[in-house]
Nucleic acid binder design. Structure first.
Lengths: 206, 206
DNA sequence: AACTATTTTCATCGTATGATGAGACTCATG
DNA sequence: CATGAGTCTCATCATACGATGAAAATAGTT
């Protein structure tokens, strides 16, 4: 912004930018890249458009992130506490595990620090094989695998897979496609609508 | 193919192509476009790559379909009998409606005439606003709306939305992300695993 | 104040894209 | 066999892309 304003107003000061905290600029580029990935898709997002959105020289994006793949990687990596909270939720006592999982999902999508990352990950996993593999590993090993831990019956993996499928379908309806009624319900109502199904998948009769 | 062979072998016959049934070429272009959309995304699919895959001159793609949007439209339009079968499934007697719906979904994804179209539609709806609107209309009005018809209780739309969400989550796991165990189970097992949930959403206690 | 390493800008390269127009070709008529 | 409409190919345009290198600007150190 400062950069563009200088140009626009045509200040006497040289066009070369002042130093700014590297982390700040990097974060701004990542955020801009994520938005472009979401709106334009992986192929549609260009270094130039990302730079424009982050208000930065296109070559600078290339300086921070050598390739589009590394940008995509940075844009789809969740903060560590998200993974921690996931672990906590899927390790909850069996009787309340369904409730805890759906609460975790809903609150993560609502949080500004994780929602856009989930959004970008879900979308880019369809095109980019690397992101897909990341998501597959995360879902399969961490989620489906871990959720199934300490499930009493057989069908452990099937049960966890069904839990995951219900959650993914909910996310797509509510957060990505924004289909009514799931998109406009309150978090509370969504949780109470879905939790029983998850719980039945976890330890109900099949 | 004939075209390329002529070039490769260098026959005396002129390079200009012979007549071919317009429908055949058009269908080949649509199919090639769909594959490119699936593999490369909407922005990543190029007229040239589509033409190469369909073994056709790039300008010919432009001759048949003036814009990428019209190609995308053609590639994501399901055959009419798919819509008919959907109507039939969601109009089944309430007691067996869940079963009928999941059977319809699974068999549609398995069929070569509809599976790739569903695949492309699911993927492209994320980027292309027009496809998204098509899917939203199709899901929202035709599916969620119609499924809720003749449901006894209140919560009609919520029930239909939950049915839809479970189905979408299943599709994503099984057909797009190909996550185990849902991806490798037989159609029969998937149907019997999911049908009870759908039925509970339709007319169970909430 | 001079020196060095890092960050940022600018100009430019080769390539690929969507689009278009001119013309070659085929085929069904007259 | 001449004509004209529909089909297909080729060559080309302007534009946008990712990438790179040279140079300018800054910060930190001495």
């Amino acid at each position: 912004m400062m950069r563009l304003m200088k140009k626009a107003i045509g200040e006497a000061e040289s066009g070369r930018g002042p130093r700014e905290d590297r982390g700040v600029i990097s974060a701004r580029i990542i955020s801009a890249a994520r938005d472009e990935f979401i709106e334009q898709g992986v192929s549609g997002a260009t270094f130039r458009a990302i730079a424009r959105r982050a208000d930065v020289d296109p070559a600078l994006v290339h300086y921070y992130f050598a390739s589009k793949e590394r940008l995509l990687d940075a844009a789809t990596t969740p903060p560590p506490d998200f993974l921690d909270n996931t672990q906590t939720a899927i390790s909850a006592p069996l009787a309340i595990r369904g409730q805890r999982i759906i609460e975790h999902v809903v609150s993560s999508w609502a949080a500004p620090s994780t929602g856009p990352i989930l959004y970008a990950t879900f979308l880019c996993a369809n095109v980019d094989e690397r992101t897909r593999e990341k998501l597959r590993a995360s879902m399969s090993a961490n989620f489906i695998g871990a959720t199934s831990q300490r499930l009493p019956q057989r069908d452990r993996l099937l049960r966890a897979g069904l839990v995951s499928s219900q959650i993914v379908g909910l996310c797509w309806h509510r957060y990505i496609w924004k289909l009514d009624p799931l998109a406009t319900m309150s978090d509370r109502d969504v949780i109470s609508a879905v939790a029983p199904t998850l719980q039945k998948y976890l330890n109900g009769r099949m």
